[in-house]
Design a protein around this nucleic acid. Structure first.
Lengths: 344, 344
DNA sequence: CTGAAAGCGCTTACAG
DNA sequence: CTGAAAGCGCTTACAG
């Protein structure tokens, strides 16, 4: 099949199809202006020879690597896993591949690590997950290298830098509204760590909903957490040993909500009988614990798909410049009502 | 810095250093036979120009892509996450990059998907995680393409195909020995699904330990599980409602052990007071639940590092042929004794 | 210890 | 609608 016995090249296809390599290239890249019969003939030979263009040659000649990078910090975070899943699938559909790199957010040679990856691989785009997407050093290194980026749920949107997110504020409002509509009035809130933007947004949503219903947040019912199981458990211990207990706890992520569940159970406080608990994230375990957790599903895989699409579309000259409002996507979330919440 | 204003190329470095590009190439690839002063001079210019060789050019000319592929099925599995973490880190240290691809084990176009990736990217090696590493279609596609593979914890070792694993049998023996040494005699075992090799090996270890102590497995105390939380919970419900309850449960993975914990707590059976529970995997949540779970830590990240190393060393002509016994690595595990087990 | 030449397999202008 | 030429930035033989 191939001249030298290795895998077939574009030259083999061209010879076999009786056309020039340029025409083969045109067909493979879906360029317009190829006669249909020519196209069919080329595709037939491509199929017969099982020819696939070699990425390194395309990349060297064309300046596109068909590689998209995914930079993350905490590999065990469910968020990262879902991003990766959504991104690989969409990449495959679009003929791209995903290169992953795990970076310490505070590594001394962070910039160097990024430079090495970018210079070596020349990825066509980069997806950044928190907290890396909020790290000025990461962003400037990438900007200088001219690598298009999409930020996943960044702390704040940057002018000219594409981002994808969900509406944390609104989702937290919905959860709070649910609890209020179930008749809860003493609703405790466990906040996330100050250095994560989601913390503030979710709290904001909580407060908004209370205000809309004529309530105001009770400082007694506010606890600081750290988005971890333990911090949720500890916060719940505080809240549930008050003289006047809350009837519901809104933990601003699932890990903390699971901690609340554990604390309630240790205190012999039935959920949802005596206490309603709501989380945020719809983590894999949220559906598995007892009782299954009412929470909010983040559309993470969809966000990742959207990120890949933005990166790929940016490659096309005609799409190179998106308007500022097209740059920042907000994807719809979903309230997941399970058994951990009940009318009081 | 560069002739044409883009990023510097090997030509720029050669000109600046007053040598040929071949010499620059030699220095960069750590080839022997370069005068030290020449080497230093080249490295100085490389540093000054911040030159990094372009992977696509190296790949096209040299036939090595410096890419290693990671193929996995279930992205949410903690195992995959740890493999990926270990692999990316080791790849970076060795100048490689990790490309990930998620595949359905029973996808109709599985072979095509693999072909596409291999033909396009020409990865220098591939890491396969269960169950893909036991899928004949995957293995034959990869063999035909000539891509070196390392199997992570495959069902069985294949002649000539490198693999990395831990000793499941022995680890299960150790857990069982621990329970026996704590005075437990009625030890229940929850098996994993038949289609996963770890299931059989862990059960084997359990049986071995019993036999060594003069016991034999009681069919009443054996339950079939599926390595999921729910299956563990259901199995435990069965076991714990028997007229004669077990005093200890060895769930052959952590997810099932967590299910056992949940069941015990719902039945009001204190752990470890009335029931000892042991798992297997040391999953992230194992340490977070109450009580923290006694389990076995799989050296997954280390296994992944070893896999990358085997793949990279195979690139070197002098290392191309490993002996059969060097092909199959078994890495040491670690017994993690926490609070879910107690003397009866 | 060092270098000049050829070539890897594509795409990009440029013609026609 | 199609093609011949040049070139992307490296490494591989091959010389010396």
């Amino acid at each position: 099949m191939s001249a030298r016995g290795g895998s077939p090249t574009i030259v083999d296809v061209a010879r076999e199809a009786g056309v020039s390599i340029k025409t083969v290239s045109r067909v493979l890249n879906h360029e317009p202006g190829v006669h249909e019969s020519t196209r069919d003939q080329v595709l037939k030979v491509v199929e017969a020879l099982r020819y696939r263009p070699k990425q390194s040659a395309r990349s060297l000649a064309g300046g596109r690597s068909f590689l998209i990078g995914l930079l993350y910090y905490d590999p065990s975070a469910a968020f990262v896993g879902s991003v990766q899943q959504g991104a690989t699938v969409r990449c495959r559909e679009l003929g791209y591949h995903l290169v992953v790199e795990s970076l310490h957010n505070d590594a001394p040679d962070l910039r160097q690590q990024i430079d090495r990856m970018v210079m070596a691989l020349r990825p066509d785009g980069m997806i950044l997950t928190p907290p890396l997407c909020d790290n000025p050093e990461v962003l400037s290194a990438l900007r200088e290298s001219g690598t298009p980026c999409v930020l996943m749920s960044p702390e704040r949107d940057l002018r000219g830098v594409p981002s994808v997110r969900m509406d944390d504020v609104h989702a937290a409002e919905e959860i709070t509204n649910l609890l209020l509509s179930l008749g809860h009035q003493r609703i405790a809130f466990i906040k996330g760590p100050a250095d994560q933007s989601a913390s503030g947004m979710r709290y904001q949503g909580f407060v908004n909903a209370l205000h809309a219903h004529g309530f105001k947040p009770d400082p007694e019912l506010l606890q600081q957490g750290a988005f971890t199981f333990e911090s949720g458990r500890d916060a719940a211990h505080q809240l549930l040993s008050r003289r006047q207990r809350p009837t519901a706890v809104f933990a601003s992520n699932d890990d903390m909500a699971l901690g609340v569940l554990a604390a309630a159970q240790r205190l012999g406080l039935p959920v949802p009988g005596e206490l309603s608990v709501a989380g945020f994230d719809d983590s894999p375990t949220a559906a598995l614990v007892w009782p299954p957790l009412t929470t909010v599903r983040q559309p993470v895989a969809e966000m990742a798909r959207a990120a890949v699409e933005m990166l790929v579309s940016v490659q096309r000259p005609d799409m190179a410049t998106l308007e500022e409002h097209e740059l920042h996507k907000v994807l719809p979330h979903e309230l997941v009502v399970r058994d951990s919440t009940r009318a009081r």
